[in-house]
């Protein structure tokens, strides 16, 4: 049902934790029906490019796997490109996910967009 990549990131998530001196921090939670998963995301940039993303979450396997994958995809990207990462991109990078887990992919993408937006706003 779940891909090897999904299970790898869920069981051994990358970049979990907080960054004391992050350039931006954002909290997001899933606002759709039923699911109340939450993500706190930390971001560091250097000269317009993301150098590090970390996160903490109270989330299901999908949210954990999606955040882990997202935290690997974003470093090296410009802020603009990072904000373009969608839930679909994360799902594809995880080798595809069942429909019921797409909301987790979207949540991880939203977390990244939100923290990038904060940075752009100079917060």
């Amino acid at each position: 049902m779940y891909s090897k990549e999904y299970m790898k990131h869920f069981s051994n998530p990358r970049n979990i934790g907080e960054i004391d001196e992050a350039d931006a921090v954002a909290d997001v939670h899933y606002t759709g029906q039923g699911c109340f998963d939450k993500v706190r995301i930390f971001l560091i940039r250097d000269e317009g490019r993301i150098t590090r993303v970390a996160y903490q979450t109270r989330g299901c396997s999908g949210t954990i796997a999606a955040c882990s994958k997202m935290s690997e995809l974003a470093p090296g990207m410009s802020l603009h490109d990072a904000a373009e990462i969608t839930g679909g991109v994360i799902a594809e990078s995880l080798g595809g996910v069942p429909e019921k887990k797409q909301h987790s992919m979207d949540l991880a993408a939203e977390a990244l967009r939100t923290v990038v937006a904060k940075l752009s706003e100079g917060k």
Binding site: N15, I16, G17, E18, I19, D20, E21, A22, D23, F42, I44, A54, Q56
Partner: peptide
């Protein structure tokens, strides 16, 4: 709730 990454920027 605050493990793993404690590194400074």
């Amino acid at each position: 709730g605050k493990t793993f990454y404690k590194k400074k920027k």
